[in-house]
Amino acid sequence: MPSLSSAALEQLFLNARTHNVFRPEPIPETTLRQLYDLMKWGPTSMNCQPARLVFVTSPEAKALLAPALSAGNLEKTLAAPATVIIATDSLFHEHLPTMFPAYDARPMFAANAELAASTAFRNGTLQGAYLILAARALGLDCGPMSGFDAGKLNAAFFADGRFQANFLCNLGIGDPAGLHPRGPRLAFDEACRIV
């Protein structure tokens, strides 16, 4: 498989930034659907796909989200065209017979809540990263963040307790005027070993 072009690498990584200010242009539902249709192909263990997404776009849904946001994330999130709640499904294993037909893996997770929770969190987080890359590939800018009260958010959006919020990501066309200076990154030798 050939490497991506320099332009593609710049769009996905090298020139991509975390945006805090977005132009007030709505994201069409077709784009949100295309975003999911790209991100869902990223690998997860046993193809478990535990991420569940809520695209918060309406004023009513933003009002429901607002009380869970930290003060530093409130204004930018309410102004963003869309905010994605990346959550995990605690009962993801119910879908394994379809998603992973090699053998019946449901009992392994149904009998071990700790294994199910760690698998859901790890793989749901991976899927959140795939969402960011898919959004960038489609020309959207992203503002991933923590900075929210998970208890309040889960109560507002996932009252039955099955889904648990992991993190949030604002989406839209970023305004470069709102960018902060880019932070440094660790060098290879600071972060990596080859053994």
Score class of each variant (00 low, 15 high):
Arg52Gly: 12
Thr57Met: 14
Arg23His: 15
Phe100Leu: 14
Asn20His: 15
Gln127Ser: 01
Arg106Leu: 05
Thr98Lys: 08
Arg23Pro: 00
Thr98Met: 00
Asn47Lys: 10
Ser45Gln: 14
Glu25Ser: 09
Phe109Leu: 03
His93Trp: 15
Ala63Ser: 15
Tyr130Pro: 05
Ala61Arg: 12
Phe109Asn: 07
Tyr36Pro: 00
Met46Gln: 10
Glu114Tyr: 09
Pro59Gly: 06
Thr125Glu: 08
Glu94Phe: 12
Ile85Met: 05
Val84Asn: 01
Glu25Leu: 12
Ala71Glu: 14
Glu75Gln: 10
Asp89Gly: 07
Leu126Lys: 06
Thr31Asn: 08
Pro24Ser: 15
Asn73Trp: 00
Ala120Lys: 02
Gln34Ile: 00
Leu131Lys: 05
Leu69Pro: 06
Asn20Gln: 14
Leu96Asp: 03
Val84His: 01
Arg136Glu: 04
Pro59Lys: 04
Gly124Trp: 01
Tyr130Trp: 14
Leu32Met: 01
Arg106Gln: 15
Gln34Arg: 14
Ala61Gly: 03
Asp37Tyr: 08
Gln127Cys: 02
Val84Trp: 00
Ala79Asp: 12
Cys48Leu: 12
Ala61Tyr: 05
Glu25Gln: 12
Pro28Glu: 15
Gly124Val: 00
Glu75Lys: 11
Ala80Tyr: 10
Val54Cys: 12
Leu91Met: 08
Thr18Arg: 10
Ala102Gly: 13
Thr30Val: 13
Val21Asn: 00
Ser58Asp: 07
Leu138Ala: 05
Val54Ile: 13
